[in-house]
Computed example of a mutant assay.
Amino acid sequence: MDDEPLAEWAKRRDERIGRLRAVPLVSGDGPKASRLNPDCPRAIQRWNGYTWEPHGTAASLAEAQRLLHPRDERPSAAPEPQPLRAGRGRHRKSRPRE
């Protein structure tokens, strides 16, 4: 088995610190997939490098998604038009005539 150096492993672990996840708060051994219970509350957990710790709560899957993946609130600028470059392009190649 190839062992990676401890420094590389620690670097990978530290990159994930602060990552959030949402866990459905359902009782029993029922299914815990988020798509099955979109209206049940969620516990928001944060990775501290060693374990997942409580970070907050969300009332539903939609609210949890907004917390986990916030959108950029700044309005985006209109994309610049890209003029066609000279040339025929690969999709316009003519086939050799026989």
Rank of each mutant, 00 (worst) to 15 (best):
A77T: 09
A59S: 13
E73R: 12
H69N: 15
R46V: 09
W47D: 01
A78S: 10
Q45I: 03
W47A: 02
R66Y: 04
I44H: 00
E53Q: 12
T51V: 15
A78H: 04
T57F: 13
R42Y: 08
I44A: 01
L67S: 03
N48K: 02
G49S: 01
R46P: 03
A77R: 10
A59L: 10
A77C: 07
A77D: 08
A64H: 03
Q65M: 14
S60E: 05
Q65E: 15
T51E: 15
R46I: 10
A78W: 05
E63G: 09
W52C: 02
H55Q: 10
A62Y: 07
T51C: 13
A62S: 10
E53L: 13
L61V: 11
S60N: 11
W47R: 03
A78P: 07
A59T: 14
E63A: 13
G49D: 00
A59Q: 11
A62G: 11
T51Q: 13
L61F: 12
Q65N: 14
P70F: 01
A62M: 10
R71P: 01
L61H: 14
T57S: 13
G56M: 07
D72R: 09
E53I: 15
R71F: 07
H55I: 05
T51S: 12
Q65S: 11
E63W: 02
Q45Y: 07
W52L: 08
H69I: 11
L67N: 04
R74D: 11
E53H: 06
R74T: 13
Y50R: 14
T51F: 09
S60V: 04
A58L: 06
N48M: 00
